[in-house]
Nucleic acid binder design. Structure first.
Length: 451
RNA sequence: GGCGACGUGGCCGAGUGGCUGAGGCAAAGGACUGCAAAUCCUUCCACAUGGGUUCGAUUCCCAUCGUCGCCUCCA
């Protein structure tokens, strides 16, 4: 196993990845609430943790990536009511679209994708344990977590409980004993068409407790990496951490890993702001390769801008890899290039530095081009596989040149031999209008799809 | 207001207490080519501002300015 360090939001330090058992690494990455189609900002954690999983595998670990779907909460009720459909029906539809949209990224699926509604029993048990331990209380069918019963509260998001805004909303008398408390279980209210029986009456789980319960069910507690967007640090992850620590006496996870936000213009991309680029649109417009390399082109903790310029650049980078792929043959790569592959892995092992890893990959490409001729592709293949871009080495899909194009190419060669440059160039233009660029190499002319 | 992050060459984006300066995109020049394309080489050589620590700071500390995130649902 290659030593790996990852930045931990709780301590603020780079922490070594230390599996509880053998080489097993449990990763829980918060997935979406399924009430609409996801945008490229939502896709970032899917890609970050999906590629992290691939890297850990290549580094000798045995990762298990768990990414939940929140399929019951206020947003879903609101969206379903607005659309005039049942909330569970909407959640199911959007869950399917989420899977289709992320499938199109082509990086594989998480090892487990639990549904909140599939873990109601575990959630109820966890809440009951919290009540029994004095960390939660029931109030008219709701159950709340008692923040002040857990002194460590605030440790993850580095907030002082006593400095937290005490201003309570004015809408009605709260059932909370303390305004800091948050809901674990919510009694069924008007307009909610799904509910589950519980010791506290019919209702449904709060958002934060879902993740604590599902993570524990899939990975146990004190697992290796808990991830998600940086906007989840507070209150979502703070609450998860508090719930599990209070109920189990152990931290939920060893490393808290948070990705930065995707920005659209100068703002965070968010449905609530309305400045979103939907993932499926981005893939349709720019191709999954470009979307992927764009997402990997910045360090996961930094904000990432979403603009046409960035996608154009991403496409150019993809094209550069496609070009070198023409000269790749299966088999071992030259010894002299091995250090790029090694440093590629080192970069990822050092807080998952994908831009630095890409720099090594492109260093390999440059050197490979410099040598000329064909070159063994093992190194490049290995690096691209980690990034889920190994498809770039494959023959381009789609039809090759048809016989008309090949005939023109032959005609052009004849003209060239006769030094009839005007005719040769005319044919080249004609081929271009048919979608083919002519390249005259040492081994004769070649037709490649025009860009 | 509180907490946190960031400000690097035309653009994007890593990184490091000194031997100066990843990688990509773009541009210009050169090589190759009949001319191109692709590729290679070269050039354009930066670290927000002001202090401080240091033999030495872009890298550490403080302040200022600017930007962003969280503090409410949020990937």
């Amino acid at each position: 196993m290659r030593p790996v360090r990852i930045h931990d939001s709780l301590t603020g330090d780079l922490l070594p990845l230390e599996p509880r058992e053998g080489n097993k690494v449990g990763i829980y990455a918060c997935g979406p609430t399924v009430y609409g189609r996801i945008h490229v900002g939502n896709a970032r954690p899917f890609v970050v943790f999906g590629i992290l999983r691939r890297f850990l595998e290549a580094a000798g670990y045995d990762p298990k990536l768990v990414s939940n779907l929140t399929d019951v909460n206020d947003k879903i009720y609101a969206a379903a009511n607005a659309a005039g459909v049942g909330s569970s029906q909407l959640a199911e539809e959007m869950g399917s679209l989420y899977k289709a949209d992320t499938d199109a990224l082509g990086i594989g699926r998480p090892d487990a994708e639990p549904l909140a509604t599939g873990h109601i029993d575990e959630i109820i048990t966890l809440i009951a344990d919290l009540i029994e331990g004095g960390h939660a209380y029931e109030a008219e069918g709701d159950v709340y977590f008692s923040v002040r019963s857990h002194p460590a509260y605030g440790e993850l998001s580095h907030r002082d409980v006593d400095q937290m805004d005490q201003g309570e909303g004015v809408e009605g008398a709260s059932l909370k004993r303390d305004s800091l408390d948050f809901a674990l279980w919510k009694a069924t209210k008007e307009g909610e068409d799904t509910s589950w029986d519980s010791p506290w009456g019919p209702g449904r789980p709060g958002w934060h407790i879902e993740c604590s319960a599902m993570a524990e069910a899939e990975l146990g507690v004190d697992f290796e990496i808990h991830g998600g967007g940086s906007d989840l640090v507070f209150p979502h992850h703070e609450n998860e951490q508090a719930q599990t620590a209070a109920a189990r006496g152990k931290p939920l996870a060893r490393i808290w890993m948070h990705n930065g936000m995707v920005r659209f213009g100068e703002e965070k991309m968010a449905k609530s702001v309305g400045n979103v680029l939907l993932l499926h649109s981005a893939i349709e417009d720019h191709g999954r390769d470009a979307v992927l390399i764009w997402l990997l082109g910045g360090h996961y903790r930094q904000p990432l801008s979403c603009t046409d310029e960035r996608f154009a650049e991403a496409k150019a980078r993809i094209q550069r890899i496609r070009e070198v792929a023409r000269r790749i043959e299966p088999g071992a790569s030259p010894e002299g290039l091995a250090h790029y592959r090694e440093r590629f892995m080192d970069s990822l092992a050092d807080d998952f530095n994908t831009p630095a890893a890409l720099a090594e990959l492109f260093g390999w490409v440059r050197d490979a081009n410099r040598d000329g001729g064909t070159i063994g592709g093992d190194d490049l293949q290995a690096m691209l596989e980690v990034l889920a871009l190994e498809n770039l080495l494959e023959e381009p899909t789609g039809d090759g040149p048809d016989s008309a194009a090949l005939d023109l190419l032959t005609e052009r060669e004849t003209a060239r031999q006769a030094k009839d440059w005007a005719e040769a160039d005319r044919i080249r233009d004609e081929l271009l209008s048919m979608g083919w660029t002519v390249r005259d190499g040492d081994n004769g002319p070649e037709l490649v799809p025009a860009q």
